[in-house]
Amino acid sequence: MVGSQLVLRRCPKRSLLVMLPLVAALLTGCGGGAKNDTFDLNTAVSADGPAARNRQILVPEPTALSALGSDQVMVRVSTSEIQYLSKAQWSDKLPRMVQAKLVEAFEDTGKLGGVGKPGQGLAIDYQIVSDIRAFEINTAGRRANVEISVKILNDRNGTVIAQKIFSAASPVAGSAGNTAFIRALDAAFATVTAEIVDWTLRAI
């Protein structure tokens, strides 16, 4: 965290100071030896959907473009340019984190007969197939954006019974440091997760 600066990094190695609306962005080379702060996501979700205790669901790892498929925290500098938050990383690759947090959120409701990941041997009724479309800090709007597309697949006949795109934005509060950025992403993800869980319980 560098005061009110948003620190980003990209390859190839070069340094460039760019002034952006509301935030100063320092672009640095990727490959430095500094240790990164590691961040996780919150799973506290309250779902209002009905119980489906006679249903078991499978949550595969979400798909995502390669830019979102790593443990780096994406920052959108413009509509066509992305960077990554310097000295910060997720505790795992983002798709695996989202998968794990969705499983936890479904389990924590206590409203399903079972929730699992591929390979755990559950007799599955439905698969929750998802694609991460956005999981980023937007510097121009000074906000976090999360967007996830979800399909509910009948595991017995391969039919998609419902599909929907979930999105949420959360403002970056306080100083523009790494912790503030992650908190905004966490808040947006919590909103999306709660909506996914509630919608799924109503659909199955």
Rank of each mutant, 00 (worst) to 15 (best):
L65H: 08
A188F: 04
L58W: 02
V45H: 04
A44S: 14
Q72N: 12
A123V: 14
A190V: 10
S167K: 05
E136D: 12
Q72H: 11
F166I: 03
P118I: 05
R14P: 04
A25K: 03
A134S: 10
K35D: 15
L153H: 00
A190K: 00
A25Y: 06
V98I: 14
A187F: 01
A44N: 13
R9S: 12
I124K: 01
A51P: 13
Q56F: 10
G32M: 05
A184V: 06
D108I: 00
G177I: 10
C11H: 07
G141H: 04
A123R: 07
Q89N: 06
L112Y: 00
E195S: 14
I137K: 00
G141M: 02
L65Q: 12
P118R: 03
Y126R: 00
A105N: 05
D108N: 15
F135M: 08
D131A: 11
D71A: 15
V197I: 15
I128N: 04
A190R: 01
T139G: 10
V23L: 04
D71R: 12
N157K: 10
G116Y: 08
P60A: 07
G3N: 05
R142E: 09
A180I: 01
E107T: 08
V197L: 08
L58V: 06
D108A: 14
A188G: 10
P60K: 03
G116I: 11
G158E: 04
G174Q: 08
D125W: 06
T109P: 03
R9W: 08
P118G: 03
T159F: 02
R76P: 02
I182K: 00
W90C: 01
S149M: 07
M1A: 12
L85E: 01
